[in-house]
Design a protein around this nucleic acid. Structure first.
Length: 320
DNA sequence: AAACTAGTCAACCGCTAGTCA
DNA sequence: GTGACTAGCGGTTGACTAGTT
């Protein structure tokens, strides 16, 4: 079926902000003839707009029952609870708030409520506490680790190494926007907090962040943990800085004795702090979360991390 | 004072579902 | 069953504004 375009520029239809004159024409027409018939309305009302634009203008701005101004606390609470129920079904949410439009609620959600929820540690998608979400993932991961048989270990280690290598690159690529003072706190306050129980070897972790282009307040930071390793795998004499890394650095979060990935380097609490500090770095956080959850999880359609190469080009393609 | 950045929100776009001939 | 059309929805864009450098 060929759809006729709604707004045809070649017909000289106007786009953009509405003028008071246009508003007046639309309002008086709808008041006289009622809503509906949007396709033919513009011509009848003497407007050089497409019907869709007229409907939207009426529904979101000119309708007499529209309530304008700040959202009240009650309205905000209603939006949150309705969002928990309906998700991003803005029209459904709007039906629960007389006088408010779906567009207005959607904008208010994206610019105010979402940020506030994240600040409070609540996931705006699931409405769960972020720590609960993480706990679910970590628990799943721990269960998965316990069911790995010794026959699988070699293969698993290879995958983990590739995963860690990939994540290292990802972290170098995207992690530079992490608030590094927070990361420094985590690393410096006692190093890794491994939760893996299938191996008793001491955990050591290499951490490097390229901070050359970091715009945060700290351009480099000093870890205090003596568990850190240099790029060649030797333990450093702390303190050392994280500002010297390059794309040729070895793994960022990998321990070659215990195939520890990025996630096991942080305990839940620290992970939350890290997550809070870089909530706007969604791609990086998504990748982290994916890495935590996907290894042996069923129903994951995306290509596993360990199947990716570790060049920047491949990483960019992966995120494209 | 000018340039830049970030936040806000009205309007647009692409798509789907429903209706009717 | 098919095609044309309308209404409505959710995601995205871009103009505008306020704040910051």
């Amino acid at each position: 079926m060929v759809r006729t375009p709604c707004c045809r520029a070649e017909l000289g239809l106007k786009k953009g902000a509405w003028t008071p004159e246009e508003d007046q024409k639309l309002t008086s027409y709808v008041n006289r003839h009622g809503e509906g018939g949007w396709r033919t309305l513009p011509e009848k009302a003497g407007l050089k707009r497409c019907g869709k634009s007229c409907r939207l203008r009426w529904a979101n701005y000119l309708r007499p029952d529209i309530k304008r101004g700040e959202f009240t606390e009650d309205e905000e609470l209603s939006i949150i609870s309705l969002h928990a129920l309906h998700g991003n079904k803005w029209a459904a949410i709007a039906r629960g708030l007389p006088g408010r439009t779906d567009n207005e609620i959607k904008n208010y959600w994206n610019t105010h409520i979402k940020k506030r929820l994240i600040k409070k540690g609540v996931d705006p998608v699931t409405h769960k506490n972020i720590s609960e979400n993480l706990q679910d993932i970590l628990e799943k991961r721990n269960i998965n680790q316990t069911i790995i048989t010794s026959d699988d270990d070699l293969d698993h280690n290879k995958k983990m190494e590739k995963s860690a290598r990939f994540l290292n690159r990802v972290a170098n690529r995207f992690g530079k926007r992490i608030n590094q003072s927070v990361l420094s706190e985590i690393i410096g306050s006692g190093g890794p907090h491994a939760t893996i129980t299938n191996n008793t070897t001491t955990i050591t972790t290499s951490v490097t962040v390229d901070s050359k282009s970091d715009k945060s307040t700290s351009s480099s930071f000093t870890p205090t943990s003596n568990l850190l390793m240099t790029a060649n795998g030797n333990a450093t004499s702390s303190p050392s800085t994280f500002s010297e890394s390059s794309i040729n650095d070895r793994l960022m979060y990998w321990d070659k004795e215990d195939d520890i990935g990025f996630s096991t380097f942080l305990n839940d609490e620290d992970f939350m702090v890290l997550e809070e500090s870089c909530v706007e770095n969604t791609e990086f956080m998504k990748e982290l979360t994916r890495f935590l959850g996907e290894d042996e999880t069923d129903n994951v359609e995306m290509m596993p991390v360990y199947e990716h190469q570790d060049s920047f080009e491949d990483i960019d393609n992966y995120f494209a």
